[in-house]
Nucleic acid binder design. Structure first.
Lengths: 187, 187
DNA sequence: TTAAATTTCCAGTAAATACTGGAAATTGAA
DNA sequence: TTCAATTTCCAGTATTTACTGGAAATTTAA
């Protein structure tokens, strides 16, 4: 399979960006190719198009599967493995957020929880623990919020985003109408 | 300067996590150390505490400055450069979001904008461009929302987060009261 | 059960990144 | 202006990560 100049630019860009997103060039390019192809591709097709060795494609796909960004599909009458990304771009977004959270946030949250259980036995530890408590509070708040948002339908989330800063006005109304914080009471 | 076991765990953890956040071990550890120290540190102190060469500390600090995660300060009667992170953890959060957006999102947005201006001259390009349009729409929506949210006070953002999924109820009210989308009209 | 197609694994190699120590440049007090 | 303190730069080395080709294992149609 041969790439059009348009497709090639897209693929090369994702290869470059890969490193900023925690994956290597190969993985970035493979994902980009699958994303714009509009149909499932098999490992050989990918390797041929991007000029990667068969093994390299295999490793890349395995990584994308670990990210839940591509899934394995089978075409009737063909025993090869084919791969495709989630159809809906919102699904991709959600998965990406979940995975990044799992990899980048959760380990730190665990560490902080443990560290905050200990009794500080010096002034330095006292200060350090205070700082950790601040960080912990922020992470709890934002991940808790993310949990809640994920329970909303994509349509609601879209509406919310379109509302933008006007949400402040809505909030002021909420105050009057006694919509409180997450405990349901007033602030 | 010597680390307590508590502080050491924190520092080592951030060293490990660094790679997942797009910085190396050195940078992660330096930042962690500055974060929990509660006072500005100079390069020598950092290098001595973490057992890094003086140059390595210099490079690491430069990178943290590029991220706007530490700032240079001077202590009276001392000509050495001292460094400290923003005091407020919400500032750190905001800067982190801004920088990640600038590095991870903006380049892709530019590329998509350009690619979408072109006239597709094959069915494959047509499909590819459709996919790019989807991605572009999602990014525009979310970054536009982020822009708006940044205009709110931290207190408002905190309240919003604490509201969580209950925001849906508020939105339903907003509907009745004719709070519309970002254009101010009704949906 | 066999054999061809396909995937996974692995050892070796290539490339990129991180790190060091020292030399050069810069800074600021005297 | 001088000189000591401090920072920045740079070349070389070490470490880590990426990639390849082939061999072994697995799968499935016949």
């Amino acid at each position: 399979m041969n790439l059009t100049p348009l497709a090639e630019r897209f693929v090369l860009h994702f290869g470059e960006m890969g490193s900023r997103w925690g994956v290597n060039r190969t993985v970035g390019q493979i994902y980009a190719l699958l994303y714009i192809s509009g149909k499932p591709l098999c490992a050989d097709e990918i390797g041929e198009t991007l000029a990667f060795s068969r093994s390299n494609v295999g490793i890349g796909i395995k990584e994308l599967q670990a990210w839940r960004l591509v899934k394995l599909v089978h075409l009737p009458g063909d025993r090869r493995d084919f791969f495709e990304p989630p159809k809906d771009v919102w699904d991709i977004f959600r998965v990406l957020m979940e995975e990044r959270r799992r990899r980048e946030i959760e380990p730190t949250l665990s560490m902080l929880r443990e560290a905050l259980l200990e009794r500080p036995d010096s002034e330095a530890d006292q200060i350090a623990q205070d700082r950790m408590r601040e960080m912990h509070g922020l992470i709890e708040l934002t991940t808790g919020w993310l949990d809640e948002v994920q329970r909303l339908s994509p349509e609601t989330v879209i509406r919310l985003m379109q509302l933008g800063a006007k949400v402040q006005k809505v909030l002021e109304f909420a105050d009057k109408l006694k919509f409180g914080g997450r405990d349901g009471g007033e602030a």
